[in-house]
Design a protein around this nucleic acid. Structure first.
Lengths: 252, 252
DNA sequence: CGCGCTCTTGAAAACCGTCAACCGCCGTGG
DNA sequence: CCACGGCGGTTGACGGTTTTCAAGAGCGCG
């Protein structure tokens, strides 16, 4: 094992949040209401492909996503580019720019939506009078750090099929947390983008989705392979587990 | 390409920081001095294997690493564990706990060192009177987010050999930023840990290191395969590029 | 209708993981 | 003192997963 100094060998699973479905959307809506009220942000409509900030651009604003979907694209000096994050309603964008006073990623809209523009300096000013605001800011950054680590772990420890299943689970749960339907979701990304995000080729994504459909873990809608039916999100997690357990108990 | 709406097809490389070697260590030392002065943190010695916080534990403190090396280990519900971050002098630890009021990772010392304990609440209090403190906090979180994304990109876009080279480059540059020697570094991790961090097996790490040594990009010290000589950090970056360029121009 | 784009599927190849053997080091204990 | 076992590391052979290359189907659009 890696951590030799672990007192409790089996960690007690984190107590599940146990957020009731009805509350799911309420919480983010409530947070957004509070932010809108205290920050009075400028509202900006975006459409698919719009770039709200770009790597290299001078940092100045943070952005809060009120509706729509964004992808965060990282660029390396040698020209590689990769989707390193997905953003949903209530998420913040632009944290990467604070340290170096320049954004280091692109933020690209994957749908029409609305972002709220929050000048960083005025946010700080508002935080001094509204401590709850600072808490929300820090919580948002903390969530992003925790999630980035989960992403890294998925990519590093899961085989291709499981990565795709886990990706769908993540997407569905992100929607559920915001009170949206998860039984039928529409992927806003091509197979190539999904593959890029998950560190695999578009063909592997396609094959994984086909296998998931064959196993009835997901379904494809009547028309178009962009809509995915997820009758049971738990089945996706179960599929991931199945991928990790090589020996299927071999009857007896 | 992924981002169709990019105005400038070839991004101007980020202006190099051009920090002079002499300044390198000074900046972090200066920051640490400021933090110590304004926070008066409790100091705590740690030794290899010590765990300063653990996934599931109630959040309360942030930690600043004054000396030594830490690894951040993420745990999944199904028992997978993975190194998702490395921490050096001047880095902060514990951000992952803010959002859920519980840490979601383990922080494990890889050497003897000293951490400063900073109760989160008292940090916030201090920030209200010292805005520079808040800036440092946010910059630290921002750097962590940006770096996590870089890690994800490395794992997703680089072949195994290049990942190891990039890992050594990252380690060397982290040391350089803090004013430490980089011509001979001692890895504080086993091959298994490095592989776990990079999403590959220990055998692949070993082979990659052997190839790097064969190509004279790195060297092994007289005794022990834990010390690595890096005559030129730039050669590591060049090696990464070579891995990415499949056709070596084939003589005309 | 033809074109471009996305997606799917197959076959071959490359990369990397698995399994195994072996080496060197170190601390323990006969 | 030396034998022994454990641990970390290296290297080889093999096999499996994933990538690569290729062909073709479905669909939207001018």
């Amino acid at each position: 094992m890696l951590t030799s100094a672990r007192p409790n060998p089996i960690l007690p699973l984190r107590p599940l949040p146990t957020v009731h479905k009805e509350d799911a959307g309420r919480r983010t809506a409530e947070r957004l209401r509070l932010l809108a009220e205290q920050l009075q942000p400028q509202r900006r409509m975006v459409h698919t492909g719009d770039v709200i900030y770009q790597a290299g651009e001078r940092f100045g604003n943070l952005y809060i996503l009120n509706s729509g979907f964004f992808k965060i694209v990282n660029l390396s000096a040698d020209g590689r580019e990769q989707v390193v994050g997905l953003k949903f309603r209530g998420d913040w964008l632009g944290f990467d720019g604070i340290a170096g006073q320049r954004y280091v990623c692109d933020a690209v809209a994957m749908d029409t939506g609305e972002v709220w523009v929050v000048p960083y300096e005025s946010l700080l000013a508002a935080c001094t009078t509204h401590p709850a605001l600072l808490q929300m800011l820090h919580a948002a950054m903390s969530r992003e750090i925790a999630h980035d680590r989960d992403s890294l772990m998925s990519v590093c420890t899961l085989p291709a099929d499981a990565r795709v299943a886990d990706f769908l689970r993540y997407w569905a749960e992100s929607l559920a947390d915001r009170g949206m339907r998860t039984d039928e979701i529409t992927l806003r990304m091509t197979r190539a983008e999904i593959g890029n995000y998950l560190g695999m080729t578009l063909e592997s994504v396609s094959r994984a989705l086909s296998r998931l459909a064959r196993d009835k873990v997901i379904g494809f809608a009547t028309k178009g392979r962009r809509e995915v039916q997820i009758p049971d999100v738990g089945a996706l997690s179960a599929f991931v587990q199945r991928c990790l357990a090589p020996a299927p108990a071999m009857l007896q």
